[in-house]
Design a protein around this nucleic acid. Structure first.
Length: 274
DNA sequence: ATAAACGCCTGGCGGC
DNA sequence: TGCCGCCAGGCGTTTA
């Protein structure tokens, strides 16, 4: 499942491969993933792909007066193909470019979304208006997390998955971040000190930075996009490691449920502190 | 304010 | 070998 590092990798690939190209025509094979198909076609056809940005797990394609906001959700990928290549059953949107290539959006589970917004106001509107700060950069630190979460009775894992608290983390990287920080995922958030939250913020940065360097993770269904094969899955220390010995203490990794999510934890390195 | 439940989907899995 | 039911999972929406 693409999280911040995978989306960042896709963004970089798109900027390398399709930036500056003109969209001649779009073909929609599965309309319900697009908020407004009519507007989508009107805006996209004839537009230039100026630049692609990432906000949390969202991709923002700049088209001039408008932007296209896309989300890959669980399994979204982009491929560049020739127009005559047979259409895969999971390719739902085609962007025909002016150089005899076609950018195709591929999504087995059809969870991905597309929406058009005005360039000048898209940050003030859904779905980006409530998005929390980027974990990379100086907006996320122990003091700010404490300010935001000092009264929260939720589990820390749930708070870190909340895109309004911090943007871009998903199930994989929250598990890895909390392992790095030595914090049990079921720790009640308000009990964490500034210092512990600072450690969590630093660990999130470390984990994400390393994952981006390696092109993200390619686990489960999320294998690659635009020819990019992530290598970070080899670095995962707890996620998907149930029963395997902890890299640091050899205690077997447990799989539990936290807030309904499958969660991997070393109960020795991440002891519960109540 | 928070949280649980649900809906969206389908490949992969275990069970038989 | 094949069929069936269940599960994962981000996020928006609905309900408690």
């Amino acid at each position: 499942m693409p999280e911040l590092p995978e989306v960042e990798t896709v963004k970089r690939s798109l900027n390398r491969l399709v930036k500056g190209k003109k969209i001649q025509k779009v073909t929609v094979h599965y309309p319900s993933m697009i908020e407004d198909v009519k507007l989508f076609k009107t805006v996209m056809e004839g537009a230039f792909l100026h630049n692609v940005e990432r906000y949390g797990k969202f991709l923002v394609f700049h088209l001039g007066r408008y932007v296209l906001i896309g989300h890959l959700r669980m399994e979204g990928k982009y491929f560049i193909k020739h127009p005559t290549d047979p259409l895969d059953k999971h390719e739902h949107v085609e962007f025909h470019l002016d150089d005899e290539t076609v950018l195709r959006y591929h999504d087995v589970r059809k969870f991905g979304t597309f929406a058009i917004r005005l360039k000048d106001t898209f940050l003030q509107e859904p779905p980006l208006n409530k998005l929390g700060p980027e974990p990379l950069g100086d907006q996320v630190n122990g003091a700010r997390l404490k300010k935001r979460l000092k009264q929260s009775t939720r589990f820390i894992k749930s708070a870190l998955l909340d895109q309004n608290v911090i943007s871009g983390l998903g199930n994989i990287y929250v598990d890895e971040t909390l392992f790095c920080a030595g914090v049990h995922p079921e720790t009640i958030t308000y009990t964490l000190s500034d210092q512990a939250l600072e450690t969590i913020a630093c660990c999130a940065q470390d984990v994400l930075t390393k994952a981006i360097m390696l092109g993200g993770s390619s686990i489960r269904s999320y294998t690659d996009s635009l020819g990019i094969h992530g290598r970070f899955q080899q670095e995962l220390k707890v996620h998907m490691q149930e029963g395997k010995p902890c890299k640091y203490c050899n205690h077997p990794i447990d799989k539990i449920k936290v807030g309904g999510r499958g969660t991997y934890v070393c109960t020795h390195c991440q002891a519960k502190r109540l």
